[in-house]
Simulated scan of single mutants.
Amino acid sequence: MTSYDALLLLSFGGPEGTEDVIPFLENVTRGRDIPRERLEEVGEHYHLFGGVSPINRLCRDLKAAIEADFAAHGVDLPVYWGNRNWTPYLADTVRQMKADGIRHAAAFVTSAYSGYSTNDQYLNDIARAREEVPDAPEIDKLPVYCDRPGFIEPFVDATKDALSRLPEGARLVFTAHSVPLSQPNRELYVAELEEAARTIAEKAAPGTPWDLVYQSRSGPPGQPWLEPQITDHLGELHGKGVRAVAVVPIGFVSDHMEVKFDLDVEAADLAAELGIALVRAGTPGTDPRFAALPRELLGETG
């Protein structure tokens, strides 16, 4: 049994049409003084996919998978969904939860790690949304889950599959979203990524060499961020004679834009130019083991 009366699926959000792209990017970068030209440049990534980020569809699919898992295990809780940067906005979802009589919800965030942008910022989002809604329900964020089998095991299977499609001697390259070196809790974020990469590598391909690299850097060119970037790293691997890599995006729970463009387009195109065979491993998405995580965490914390 749990003391909660609802689950809130909390995510980043993304545009669902060409007219949404720039307003969405303005939401993401608000307060950071990013030039309009840079927004338009990044917007082209979305326009390659019709102006639609996969993330909202993936959240709908995950919500349905969580609801199915709840039903299969006798968990009688409604599942709500809210975003930081696009509809359905979190404050609107909290408003609906209040209208439905929800008093105490648990939040499952589509980000597995500790750190500011991956954990603390979502806590801030929850606090701000509750401030906008008088007498809002209490909302507790469920713990990070980067070390949980429901997150790790889908990546293990995806890594095995990626390696099976490459010649013998392929190298593992784990990727995650870069963050500024000045960001709070950066060290914890990196430590958790390293441990997740090590665990997946040991389970999927013991003895296979692996690297942890970063992607999707933004911000001013002079601001130091976590490195190396995957594009730079591919060049270094090429110089060392590596000709096959399995890229495993452990920083992401689903195949959203940072995966579909930064890896499947940008990194893949560079690898092809360098003569490197590259296979990108899948993400947990709606894997039943991942969809079971909210229920498992509720059982431990509720």
Rank of each mutant, 00 (worst) to 15 (best):
T2P: 11
Y4Q: 14
A6Q: 09
L9C: 12
L10E: 09
F12A: 05
E16W: 04
T18S: 12
E19N: 14
V21I: 11
V21Q: 07
E26R: 14
E40Q: 09
H45T: 15
H47C: 15
P54L: 00
I55Y: 01
I55G: 10
N56P: 11
L62W: 08
A65Q: 06
I66P: 13
D69H: 13
G74A: 04
Y80D: 02
W81D: 06
G82Q: 04
N85V: 12
A91D: 07
A91G: 10
T93I: 11
T93L: 10
Q96P: 15
K98T: 12
G101M: 00
H104I: 15
A105C: 06
A106V: 13
A107M: 10
T110H: 02
S117N: 05
T118I: 07
N124L: 14
N124A: 13
R128H: 12
R130A: 05
E132L: 09
A136C: 11
P137M: 02
K141P: 14
L142Y: 05
D157W: 02
K160M: 03
D161C: 13
A162I: 06
A162G: 11
P167F: 03
A170C: 08
L172D: 01
T175G: 09
S178E: 05
L181R: 01
Q183R: 12
Q183C: 13
N185R: 11
R186M: 05
E187L: 05
E187D: 09
V190G: 02
A191F: 02
A197Q: 02
E202G: 10
D211K: 08
L212N: 03
V213T: 12
S216M: 00
R217N: 04
S218V: 15
P220G: 04
T231R: 08
H233E: 03
L234T: 05
L234H: 06
G239E: 08
G239V: 08
G241Y: 00
V245P: 14
V245M: 07
A246W: 00
F252V: 09
F252G: 08
V253P: 04
V259H: 06
K260T: 11
K260W: 07
D262N: 06
D262H: 02
D262M: 01
D262T: 14
E266P: 14
G275A: 04
I276W: 09
I276Y: 01
I276V: 10
L278A: 04
L278R: 06
V279R: 05
A281L: 00
G282S: 09
G285N: 07
R289V: 12
A292G: 14
L293R: 07
R295P: 13
R295M: 11
E296M: 08
L298F: 12
E300R: 11
